[in-house]
């Protein structure tokens, strides 16, 4: 598989403090790459860098082998990515308008917007909420809207930052099932940040363990979970011990 996004010698520093240091990282086309790590490990910074939202302090980003030179990534490249964060962060308007917003920003035709929004509302089982104000939704409903808003853009590259973490177990389980089905149908390349081993095992192909701004281990998800290396052992080990 070829890389959709490649990072080379990336460093992010904030007030002389190193937040992220990644000599090399490839996100392969069609894969779901999981990222796990403790709080403050640099996961969200990595997501912002990969989503071309915040330029790194140093290093190169290649998108389909095209190097992004400018400090601000070109809009057309940014528009190939979609992001769903832990908080649903919906706008103060209807569910329909929230899902449609990205397409409107891209000046898609109205008929096309209607068609795509209807499709993704249905895919996430929220068609009945289309006219409801997004600020009146439950946590699970809001997160479905959040994911539909990202998926409706049919992104080449999807970035998810703990989108299921705030949900109760049955809602999370149902949404994970729906989401996995959608991901396998669309073949979207994704980076999935999570604290939850169950989510990581269920959704991702490869797993990167990020600690202190550095990738300590990167391999097939099963391999990392089965045999974490020395650096990743304290983090993964704690999880496994907890689950046993």
């Amino acid at each position: 598989m070829t890389a959709l996004v490649r990072l080379e010698n990336i460093e992010v520093t904030v007030r002389d403090k190193m937040i992220l240091s990644i000599p090399s990282l490839e996100v392969l086309k069609g894969e779901v790459l999981g990222v796990m790590g403790p709080n403050g490990a640099g996961k969200s910074t990595l997501l912002k860098t990969l989503a071309l939202l915040d330029p790194p302090s140093q290093g190169k980003i290649y998108y389909q082998e095209e190097q992004i030179f400018n400090t601000q990534a070109p809009l057309e490249l940014r528009r190939k990515c979609a992001v769903a964060l832990q908080q649903s962060l919906l706008l103060d308007t209807s569910v329909y308008q929230n899902v449609a917003i990205g397409l409107k920003l891209r000046k898609n035709k109205k008929s096309e917007i209607n068609k795509k929004v209807a499709y993704w509302l249905d895919a996430f089982n929220i068609t009945h909420l289309a006219k409801k104000n997004a600020h009146l939704l439950s946590g699970g409903e809001a997160q479905r809207v959040n994911l539909a808003r990202a998926m409706v853009l049919e992104p080449e590259f999807l970035l998810l930052d703990e989108p299921f973490s705030a949900l109760d177990f049955p809602t999370k389980l149902q949404l994970l099932k729906d989401f996995k089905q959608i991901m396998s149908q669309t073949g979207t390349t994704a980076v999935f940040i999570s604290h939850d081993l169950m989510e990581i095992k269920y959704l991702t192909h490869r797993l990167a363990i990020l600690m202190d701004g550095e990738i300590k281990q990167l391999a097939q998800t099963a391999a990392v979970l089965e045999s974490p290396n020395e650096a990743a052992t304290p983090f993964i080990g704690e999880w496994k011990a907890f689950l046993q």
């Binding site: 912002k48 940014r78 528009r79 979609a82 962060l89 308007t93 917003i101």
Partner: peptide, 28 residues
């Protein structure tokens, strides 16, 4: 405004002008 909302709007692919229009609607 939540800093993450600003990030989310940018991530939706908004140009600078679109970004401010959305924010003005949010703070209407």
């Amino acid at each position: 405004l939540d800093e993450k909302l600003l990030l989310q709007i940018k991530a939706l692919g908004a140009t600078k002008i679109q970004f401010f229009i959305i924010l003005m609607k949010e703070t209407k």
